[in-house]
Structure formats: C-alpha cells, structure tokens
C-alpha cells in the first residue's frame, strides 16, 4: 500500500487496540465482552496486515504469538471452570463472586453507576475468551495472507 495508507494505519493501530482491550475488560459493565473485544483487536491486526508489505509485517506479528494467545485463552477458560469444581459447588460455579478481593465486591442492585471490581469470575472469563478470539481470528487472517503471498512468489519464480 502507499505511504499515506501505512502511516494512517500506524496512527490508528494503538487506538483500535485500546478500544478492543477496553471492550474486553469492561464486558460485565457496558455493551461488549470477550468475543466482541477480541474481534475488534483482530481487526487491528488485519489493518496492519493490509496496510504494510508482507515482508515488513511478518517478523513483527509472528504466528507463535497468536498460537500462544489462543491456547492460553482456552486453557485459562477451562481452568477457571474447573476451579469452580474445587472451590465451590459445581463446574463453572462463580466462586469469586462473594469473596472480597479480586473482582469480588458486592454489587448494588438495580440501576447503578457500575464498578469494575464486581462480577466474580466473569471478567476473568471475558479476558480468557478475548485472548482466544484474538488469537483465532488473527491466525485465520495470517494463514490466508501467507498462502496468498506464497502463491504470488511461486508464480513469479515460475515465469
């Protein structure tokens, strides 16, 4: 892409990332959650892939990073669900909801301004799912683009 497009993408990239992580972290208070925030972050990754040359961007966004994100997200999700089995009553029990400490503040019922420190394991599950969706969608984009680039290189060499 041209210089203007890549410069504008560099400028927009941190804002897209901050917005995505805001949606993930405030999933239990405002519209959004892990799936939507992960999709926004993957959009930022797609923006960088679309705006730069493949050989410039491939060493920065490595496949291993997205692989790790996806695996860590799913393992964290299953681990939190199993922790409910040991600390509470059942699988996926909300065992942090009433314990003061991490996300355990008692919520005021009805309409309230909202506090980030509520929700029990829901914010942690949001983060886990956000990591997984970010890794999964970025990996799909990465595979498709890598294949297209490799096809182009092979065709070029063949001629």
């Amino acid at each position: 892409m041209s210089k203007i497009v890549s410069a504008a993408a560099d400028f927009l990239y941190p804002f897209v990332m901050i917005f995505g992580f805001y949606i993930v972290l405030h999933g239990h208070l405002t519209p959004g959650g892990g799936f939507q925030g992960g999709a926004v972050i993957a959009t930022g990754v797609a923006l960088m892939f679309a705006a730069h040359r493949y050989r410039d961007i491939a060493p920065i966004f490595k496949k291993a990073i997205f692989n790790t994100c996806e695996t860590v997200g799913l393992v964290l999700f299953i681990g939190l669900a199993f922790a409910g089995l040991f600390y509470g009553k059942s699988f996926m029990y909300n065992w942090l909801a009433r314990i003061p400490g991490l996300f355990g503040e008692q919520v005021s019922y009805g309409v309230n301004p909202g506090s980030l420190d509520t929700g029990g394991i829901i914010p942690l599950l949001n983060i886990a799912v956000g990591l997984e969706v970010l890794g999964a969608l970025s990996l799909v984009i990465y595979y498709l683009l890598t294949y297209v680039v490799q096809m182009g290189v092979n065709k070029h060499h063949g001629q």
């Binding site: 405002t30 519209p31 009805g110 309230n112 301004p113 909202g114």
Partner: peptide, 11 residues
C-alpha cells in the same frame, strides 16, 4: 432498552 444496568434510564 438493552439489558444492562449501568446508568440505565429505566428497568
């Protein structure tokens, strides 16, 4: 309205 209680105008 959307089912979110944060600063909701009504219930």
């Amino acid at each position: 309205i959307a089912p979110i209680f944060t600063n909701a105008p009504s219930t």
